[in-house]
Design a protein around this nucleic acid. Structure first.
Lengths: 126, 126
DNA sequence: TTTTCATATCATGATATTGTGATATGTTAT
DNA sequence: ATAACATATCACAATATCATGATATGAAAA
Protein backbone atom coordinates (compact mmCIF):
# COMPACT_ATOMS: atom_id res chain seq x y z
CA UNK A 1 0.00 0.00 0.00
CA UNK A 2 1.57 3.25 -1.14
CA UNK A 3 -0.39 6.42 -0.49
CA UNK A 4 2.19 8.95 -1.50
CA UNK A 5 2.30 8.69 -5.31
CA UNK A 6 1.80 12.08 -6.93
CA UNK A 7 1.22 12.92 -10.58
CA UNK A 8 3.51 15.31 -12.48
CA UNK A 9 1.03 18.16 -12.07
CA UNK A 10 1.05 17.69 -8.27
CA UNK A 11 -2.46 16.23 -8.03
CA UNK A 12 -2.98 13.00 -6.19
CA UNK A 13 -5.47 10.53 -7.65
CA UNK A 14 -5.21 8.16 -4.77
CA UNK A 15 -8.74 7.07 -3.94
CA UNK A 16 -8.12 7.70 -0.29
CA UNK A 17 -7.76 11.43 -1.02
CA UNK A 18 -11.00 11.74 -2.96
CA UNK A 19 -12.95 12.24 0.24
CA UNK A 20 -11.49 15.70 0.70
CA UNK A 21 -10.31 15.65 4.29
CA UNK A 22 -8.45 12.35 4.70
CA UNK A 23 -5.00 13.87 4.94
CA UNK A 24 -6.20 16.59 7.31
CA UNK A 25 -8.09 14.03 9.34
CA UNK A 26 -5.03 11.85 9.68
CA UNK A 27 -2.95 14.82 10.82
CA UNK A 28 -5.56 16.05 13.27
CA UNK A 29 -5.97 12.59 14.75
CA UNK A 30 -2.21 12.06 15.00
CA UNK A 31 -1.77 15.25 17.01
CA UNK A 32 -3.84 13.81 19.83
CA UNK A 33 -1.84 10.61 20.14
CA UNK A 34 -0.03 9.81 23.38
CA UNK A 35 3.64 8.83 23.14
CA UNK A 36 4.87 5.36 22.25
CA UNK A 37 5.90 4.80 25.86
CA UNK A 38 2.50 5.84 27.16
CA UNK A 39 0.81 3.32 24.86
CA UNK A 40 3.15 0.64 26.17
CA UNK A 41 2.49 1.53 29.79
CA UNK A 42 -1.22 1.63 29.15
CA UNK A 43 -1.26 -1.78 27.47
CA UNK A 44 0.75 -3.22 30.37
CA UNK A 45 -1.73 -1.70 32.77
CA UNK A 46 -4.72 -3.24 31.02
CA UNK A 47 -2.93 -6.57 30.69
CA UNK A 48 -3.29 -6.89 34.45
CA UNK A 49 -7.06 -7.03 34.01
CA UNK A 50 -6.90 -9.55 31.19
CA UNK A 51 -6.50 -12.63 33.35
CA UNK A 52 -9.49 -14.17 35.19
CA UNK A 53 -7.48 -15.10 38.29
CA UNK A 54 -6.15 -11.58 38.70
CA UNK A 55 -9.63 -10.16 38.13
CA UNK A 56 -10.98 -12.45 40.82
CA UNK A 57 -8.35 -11.29 43.26
CA UNK A 58 -9.07 -7.66 42.41
CA UNK A 59 -12.80 -8.21 42.85
CA UNK A 60 -12.26 -9.78 46.28
CA UNK A 61 -9.98 -6.97 47.43
CA UNK A 62 -12.52 -4.43 46.19
CA UNK A 63 -14.81 -5.76 48.93
CA UNK A 64 -12.30 -6.23 51.75
CA UNK A 65 -8.62 -6.66 52.57
CA UNK A 66 -7.55 -10.30 52.71
CA UNK A 67 -4.57 -12.48 53.48
CA UNK A 68 -3.19 -14.93 50.92
CA UNK A 69 -4.79 -18.00 52.46
CA UNK A 70 -8.20 -16.29 52.53
CA UNK A 71 -7.85 -15.58 48.82
CA UNK A 72 -6.89 -19.20 48.14
CA UNK A 73 -9.91 -20.37 50.08
CA UNK A 74 -12.36 -17.93 48.50
CA UNK A 75 -11.18 -18.78 44.99
CA UNK A 76 -10.42 -22.46 45.63
CA UNK A 77 -7.01 -21.99 44.03
CA UNK A 78 -3.63 -23.38 44.89
CA UNK A 79 -1.34 -21.16 46.92
CA UNK A 80 1.38 -20.93 44.28
CA UNK A 81 -1.06 -19.62 41.70
CA UNK A 82 -2.41 -16.96 44.01
CA UNK A 83 1.05 -15.96 45.21
CA UNK A 84 2.34 -15.66 41.65
CA UNK A 85 -0.55 -13.47 40.58
CA UNK A 86 -0.16 -11.35 43.70
CA UNK A 87 3.46 -10.81 42.75
CA UNK A 88 2.37 -9.51 39.35
CA UNK A 89 -0.27 -7.31 40.96
CA UNK A 90 2.32 -5.95 43.40
CA UNK A 91 4.90 -5.32 40.70
CA UNK A 92 2.33 -3.24 38.86
CA UNK A 93 1.15 -1.32 41.90
CA UNK A 94 -2.35 -2.73 41.74
CA UNK A 95 -2.24 -4.12 45.27
CA UNK A 96 -0.21 -3.36 48.35
CA UNK A 97 0.34 -5.49 51.44
CA UNK A 98 1.12 -5.25 55.08
CA UNK A 99 2.94 -7.97 56.99
CA UNK A 100 1.15 -9.13 60.15
CA UNK A 101 3.28 -11.83 61.75
CA UNK A 102 3.56 -14.60 59.20
CA UNK A 103 0.54 -13.34 57.33
CA UNK A 104 0.35 -10.74 54.59
CA UNK A 105 -2.76 -8.62 54.39
CA UNK A 106 -3.41 -7.45 50.84
CA UNK A 107 -5.49 -4.51 49.65
CA UNK A 108 -6.00 -2.44 46.50
CA UNK A 109 -3.62 0.50 46.14
CA UNK A 110 -5.89 2.77 44.26
CA UNK A 111 -9.51 3.68 43.56
CA UNK A 112 -8.84 3.75 39.81
CA UNK A 113 -8.43 -0.01 39.92
CA UNK A 114 -11.85 -0.54 41.40
CA UNK A 115 -13.37 1.96 38.97
CA UNK A 116 -11.98 0.29 35.88
CA UNK A 117 -13.03 -3.12 37.14
CA UNK A 118 -16.56 -1.86 37.71
CA UNK A 119 -16.94 -0.04 34.39
CA UNK A 120 -15.72 -3.16 32.61
CA UNK A 121 -18.14 -5.36 34.50
CA UNK A 122 -20.97 -2.99 33.70
CA UNK A 123 -20.01 -3.16 30.04
CA UNK A 124 -20.08 -6.94 29.74
CA UNK A 125 -23.31 -7.21 31.74
CA UNK A 126 -25.27 -4.81 29.57
CA UNK B 1 -1.56 -25.50 52.25
CA UNK B 2 -4.31 -27.20 54.23
CA UNK B 3 -6.63 -24.92 56.15
CA UNK B 4 -9.26 -27.46 57.13
CA UNK B 5 -7.56 -29.52 59.87
CA UNK B 6 -9.69 -29.67 62.98
CA UNK B 7 -8.77 -30.96 66.42
CA UNK B 8 -10.78 -33.71 68.13
CA UNK B 9 -12.66 -31.18 70.24
CA UNK B 10 -13.81 -29.30 67.15
CA UNK B 11 -11.61 -26.28 67.68
CA UNK B 12 -9.39 -25.08 64.88
CA UNK B 13 -5.94 -23.90 65.78
CA UNK B 14 -5.18 -22.73 62.29
CA UNK B 15 -3.44 -19.38 62.63
CA UNK B 16 -5.68 -17.95 59.97
CA UNK B 17 -8.69 -18.32 62.24
CA UNK B 18 -7.12 -16.57 65.19
CA UNK B 19 -8.08 -13.19 63.78
CA UNK B 20 -11.74 -13.76 64.66
CA UNK B 21 -13.53 -12.86 61.42
CA UNK B 22 -11.56 -14.56 58.62
CA UNK B 23 -14.14 -17.20 57.88
CA UNK B 24 -16.96 -14.64 57.91
CA UNK B 25 -14.90 -12.28 55.77
CA UNK B 26 -14.25 -14.99 53.21
CA UNK B 27 -17.94 -15.83 53.03
CA UNK B 28 -19.03 -12.22 52.79
CA UNK B 29 -16.53 -11.52 50.04
CA UNK B 30 -17.47 -14.69 48.13
CA UNK B 31 -21.14 -13.66 48.02
CA UNK B 32 -20.28 -10.64 45.92
CA UNK B 33 -18.36 -12.56 43.29
CA UNK B 34 -19.54 -12.56 39.65
CA UNK B 35 -19.89 -15.95 37.94
CA UNK B 36 -16.99 -17.85 36.38
CA UNK B 37 -18.28 -16.97 32.93
CA UNK B 38 -18.50 -13.29 33.78
CA UNK B 39 -14.89 -13.30 34.92
CA UNK B 40 -13.89 -14.95 31.64
CA UNK B 41 -15.85 -12.45 29.56
CA UNK B 42 -14.42 -9.58 31.53
CA UNK B 43 -10.84 -10.79 31.11
CA UNK B 44 -11.40 -11.20 27.37
CA UNK B 45 -12.78 -7.69 27.24
CA UNK B 46 -9.76 -6.19 28.98
CA UNK B 47 -7.41 -8.28 26.86
CA UNK B 48 -8.48 -6.10 23.94
CA UNK B 49 -6.91 -3.12 25.67
CA UNK B 50 -3.71 -4.96 26.52
CA UNK B 51 -2.05 -4.55 23.13
CA UNK B 52 -0.43 -1.25 22.11
CA UNK B 53 -1.50 -1.50 18.47
CA UNK B 54 -5.14 -2.03 19.41
CA UNK B 55 -4.93 0.81 21.93
CA UNK B 56 -3.55 3.08 19.22
CA UNK B 57 -6.40 2.20 16.91
CA UNK B 58 -8.92 2.79 19.69
CA UNK B 59 -7.34 6.14 20.51
CA UNK B 60 -7.51 7.25 16.87
CA UNK B 61 -11.14 6.22 16.53
CA UNK B 62 -11.95 8.04 19.75
CA UNK B 63 -11.07 11.24 17.86
CA UNK B 64 -12.63 10.47 14.48
CA UNK B 65 -13.87 7.69 12.20
CA UNK B 66 -11.17 6.43 9.85
CA UNK B 67 -10.64 4.01 6.98
CA UNK B 68 -8.03 1.26 7.18
CA UNK B 69 -5.44 3.05 5.07
CA UNK B 70 -5.76 6.19 7.21
CA UNK B 71 -5.05 4.09 10.27
CA UNK B 72 -2.03 2.51 8.57
CA UNK B 73 -0.73 5.94 7.70
CA UNK B 74 -1.36 7.51 11.10
CA UNK B 75 0.31 4.62 12.90
CA UNK B 76 2.94 3.86 10.27
CA UNK B 77 2.00 0.21 10.41
CA UNK B 78 1.72 -2.43 7.75
CA UNK B 79 -1.76 -3.09 6.41
CA UNK B 80 -1.91 -6.72 7.48
CA UNK B 81 -1.18 -5.81 11.06
CA UNK B 82 -3.89 -3.16 11.15
CA UNK B 83 -6.40 -5.37 9.40
CA UNK B 84 -5.74 -8.26 11.76
CA UNK B 85 -6.19 -6.08 14.82
CA UNK B 86 -9.35 -4.59 13.35
CA UNK B 87 -10.70 -8.11 12.95
CA UNK B 88 -10.11 -8.75 16.65
CA UNK B 89 -11.70 -5.43 17.55
CA UNK B 90 -14.70 -6.23 15.34
CA UNK B 91 -15.08 -9.74 16.76
CA UNK B 92 -15.26 -8.21 20.21
CA UNK B 93 -17.67 -5.45 19.33
CA UNK B 94 -15.19 -2.72 20.09
CA UNK B 95 -15.41 -1.18 16.63
CA UNK B 96 -17.97 -1.23 13.85
CA UNK B 97 -17.52 -0.39 10.18
CA UNK B 98 -19.42 0.83 7.19
CA UNK B 99 -18.47 -0.08 3.64
CA UNK B 100 -18.05 2.89 1.30
CA UNK B 101 -17.08 1.58 -2.12
CA UNK B 102 -13.84 -0.26 -1.66
CA UNK B 103 -13.17 1.52 1.58
CA UNK B 104 -14.25 0.59 5.09
CA UNK B 105 -14.91 3.40 7.53
CA UNK B 106 -14.31 2.28 11.10
CA UNK B 107 -15.66 3.79 14.32
CA UNK B 108 -16.02 2.84 18.00
CA UNK B 109 -19.23 0.98 18.83
CA UNK B 110 -19.64 2.22 22.31
CA UNK B 111 -18.91 5.08 24.70
CA UNK B 112 -17.75 2.60 27.36
CA UNK B 113 -14.72 1.88 25.22
CA UNK B 114 -13.65 5.49 25.14
CA UNK B 115 -14.32 5.84 28.85
CA UNK B 116 -12.18 2.88 29.85
CA UNK B 117 -9.39 4.05 27.56
CA UNK B 118 -9.46 7.49 29.13
CA UNK B 119 -9.60 6.34 32.75
CA UNK B 120 -6.65 4.03 32.06
CA UNK B 121 -4.67 6.80 30.45
CA UNK B 122 -5.41 9.11 33.36
CA UNK B 123 -4.18 6.40 35.72
CA UNK B 124 -0.82 5.87 34.06
CA UNK B 125 -0.24 9.60 33.64
CA UNK B 126 -0.76 10.49 37.27
C1' DT C 1 -11.50 -7.22 -19.44
C1' DT C 2 -7.46 -6.06 -17.19
C1' DT C 3 -5.33 -3.37 -13.80
C1' DT C 4 -5.10 -1.11 -9.60
C1' DC C 5 -6.27 -0.29 -5.15
C1' DA C 6 -8.39 -1.12 -0.29
C1' DT C 7 -9.13 -4.58 2.60
C1' DA C 8 -9.37 -9.40 4.52
C1' DT C 9 -7.71 -14.02 5.55
C1' DC C 10 -4.29 -17.69 6.18
C1' DA C 11 -0.10 -19.73 7.88
C1' DT C 12 3.88 -19.33 10.72
C1' DG C 13 7.89 -18.52 13.64
C1' DA C 14 9.12 -15.77 17.58
C1' DT C 15 7.82 -14.51 21.96
C1' DA C 16 5.00 -14.15 26.21
C1' DT C 17 1.87 -15.94 29.69
C1' DT C 18 -0.39 -19.43 32.44
C1' DG C 19 -0.84 -22.65 36.27
C1' DT C 20 1.70 -25.65 39.06
C1' DG C 21 5.20 -28.82 41.34
C1' DA C 22 9.33 -28.35 43.92
C1' DT C 23 11.56 -25.72 47.01
C1' DA C 24 13.01 -21.67 49.87
C1' DT C 25 12.16 -18.03 53.41
C1' DG C 26 10.73 -16.40 57.53
C1' DT C 27 7.57 -16.46 61.66
C1' DT C 28 5.38 -18.53 65.59
C1' DA C 29 4.58 -22.41 68.72
C1' DT C 30 6.37 -26.25 71.28
C1' DA D 1 16.15 -26.40 68.32
C1' DT D 2 12.43 -28.32 65.82
C1' DA D 3 7.97 -28.47 63.78
C1' DA D 4 4.16 -26.31 61.65
C1' DC D 5 2.55 -22.84 58.96
C1' DA D 6 1.97 -18.66 55.65
C1' DT D 7 3.97 -16.97 51.92
C1' DA D 8 7.44 -16.36 48.10
C1' DT D 9 10.41 -17.84 44.33
C1' DC D 10 12.09 -20.94 40.67
C1' DA D 11 11.66 -23.84 36.68
C1' DC D 12 8.97 -25.55 33.08
C1' DA D 13 5.50 -27.53 29.88
C1' DA D 14 1.33 -26.15 27.72
C1' DT D 15 -0.87 -22.62 25.55
C1' DA D 16 -1.79 -18.02 23.57
C1' DT D 17 -0.53 -13.90 21.15
C1' DC D 18 2.06 -11.00 17.95
C1' DA D 19 3.59 -9.05 13.61
C1' DT D 20 4.11 -10.21 9.08
C1' DG D 21 4.70 -12.43 4.36
C1' DA D 22 1.84 -14.60 1.01
C1' DT D 23 -2.37 -14.64 -0.94
C1' DA D 24 -7.43 -13.87 -1.72
C1' DT D 25 -11.52 -10.88 -2.44
C1' DG D 26 -13.99 -7.41 -4.33
C1' DA D 27 -14.73 -2.72 -6.16
C1' DA D 28 -13.56 1.03 -9.24
C1' DA D 29 -10.66 2.79 -13.10
C1' DA D 30 -8.68 2.32 -17.54
Amino acid sequence: MEMKDKNLDGTNDDICEVFDSHEDTVNRVKERMPSEEEYLDLSEFFKIFSNPTRLKIISLLAVDDLCVCDICEALDLNQTTVSNQLRILRANNIVKFQKEGKMARYSLTDLHIEMIYKVGLEHILE
